[in-house]
Design a protein around this nucleic acid. Structure first.
Length: 370
RNA sequence: GGGUUCGUAGCCUAGCCUGGUAGGGCGAUGGUCUCCAAAACCAUCGAUCGUCGGUUCAAAUCCGAUCGGGCCCA
């Protein structure tokens, strides 16, 4: 694969992603300075993930906001494919969803697609993906959602609720559409072929427009959903996309839950975090101290810096200082890593406490079939 | 239901026709080098060849059955 090639699909992300090209390829909108300003005004907050372009693209987010201003409420929907333990990269859209929920005071649905991971991963049983669904739910709850306004959908558990909606969707999507959208072939199992209609279903669970914060790799599902929404008399879902979180071991893919070493799990202990960062985090430093002092490091490709930018250092002035110190050579890679390690461990300490408590709260969050 | 094809270490795969206890690539691990990581170099671990049975002095390699995957047809 040459440097300018990359692949982004719901099941596979590879290469060095050019996000401007991706916007063009997917036909989404870049988040404009105007939209950014509008969000800022309406929420009275300048969220760092927006400001820094962690969320960089959208589909009709502006419509959602305009309608909201006119008193037309929306709801939020995001989710996760439970193929393994939760890692810190998963938290990005969830944290952002929580922020949106607080700012707009709206309902949020969180879908755990245990069936889909069973279909798409040959090495996982349905029991395993279901187990991961419940486990991942703990991490979601730990972020502090309000159970009154937040419901967790587990596909195999909530099929009764989802199915009538999915059926409406499924009838409007033909084989050519799914094949073209997802690259299905004759060896694709039929679970996969039907599956996108289940991922669509929560879009229509309330009779209101929906806004979906999500990783841009999941966009294809909702491209289809948007195409058929009017045909079934529903609102087109709006989306806001975040970039792929780089793996610890470097650019060229997102953090994968199935690759141990390139991944910081939410349940990792402080010493494991320290070891993983020091031992695996790809750095933008120079080969030795002398050159580093002289030439400086490259924060743009340095994974530790990127993690601070994406999630762990919301304070712009602090981040800027780190950026400049690293670039000038004043800050060494090892020192940068130490900063990140402390930030992650600080975060995980409280996260893990809340995650424990979530075990008592999970029932309140699970959607009841009606 | 019929046909066909495949099943070798975590992954990809050579060997099978011309039977004599398996070779490579990626990965992983350790080391050297680095403030770390990467790269580079060195080293190491790892499969008894889907399963069961048969033929043979000897089978991944031949035969049969069985399980599993893929494709085609019905």
């Amino acid at each position: 694969m040459s440097a300018d090639e990359f692949i982004v699909t719901p099941w596979h992300v590879e290469g060095d992603i050019d996000y401007d090209k991706l916007i063009e390829k997917f036909g989404t909108q870049k988040i404009s300075p105007e939209l950014l300003e509008k969000i800022k005004t309406m929420t009275s907050e300048d969220h760092f993930m927006l400001r820094r372009g962690i969320f960089f693209s959208h589909r009709e987010m502006n419509r959602i906001l305009e309608d909201y201003e006119k008193g037309k409420e929306f709801f939020l929907y995001t989710g996760r494919g439970p193929s393994g333990h939760t890692h810190i990269g998963h938290l990005v859209p969830w944290v952002f969803a929580k922020w949106l929920q607080e700012k707009f005071d709206v309902n949020l649905y969180f879908q755990l697609t245990d069936d889909e991971k069973f279909f798409s991963k040959s090495n996982l049983t349905l029991e395993e993906t279901n187990k991961f669904a419940y486990e991942n739910a703990l991490d979601f709850i730990a972020l502090g959602f309000n159970p009154e306004k937040t419901k967790i959908i587990i596909n195999t558990k909530n099929i009764q609720t989802l199915y009538p909606i999915a059926a409406q969707v499924a009838k409007k999507i033909n084989f050519s559409n799914t094949k073209a959208t997802f690259g299905f072939t004759n060896e694709t199992n039929i679970g996969m072929i039907f599956y996108t209609s289940l991922q669509s279903a929560p879009c229509f669970i309330e009779d209101k427009p929906v806004l979906i914060p999500l990783g841009v790799d999941q966009d294809p599902h909702f491209r289809l959903t948007r195409d058929i929404a009017q045909k079934i008399g529903k609102h087109k879902p709006a989306l806001i996309h975040n970039i792929m979180i780089p793996a610890l071991t470097g650019p060229g893919g997102k953090m994968s839950a199935s690759e141990e070493k390139g991944t910081i799990y939410t349940t990792d202990s402080p010493d494991v975090v320290k070891k993983k960062i020091n031992k695996y985090a790809f750095s933008g430093g120079q080969p030795d101290i002398e050159q580093h002092r002289k030439l400086g490091g490259n924060p743009d490709i340095d994974v530790s810096y990127q993690y601070l930018r994406i999630f762990f250092e919301p304070d712009d002035s602090k981040l800027k200082k780190i950026y400049e110190d690293y670039k000038s050579g004043k800050l060494l890679s090892g020192e940068l890593k130490a900063i990140l390690i402390e930030k992650i461990n600080e975060f995980l300490k409280t996260h893990q406490e809340k995650r424990e408590k979530a075990k008592q709260q999970i029932e309140q969050f699970l959607l009841e079939n009606k």
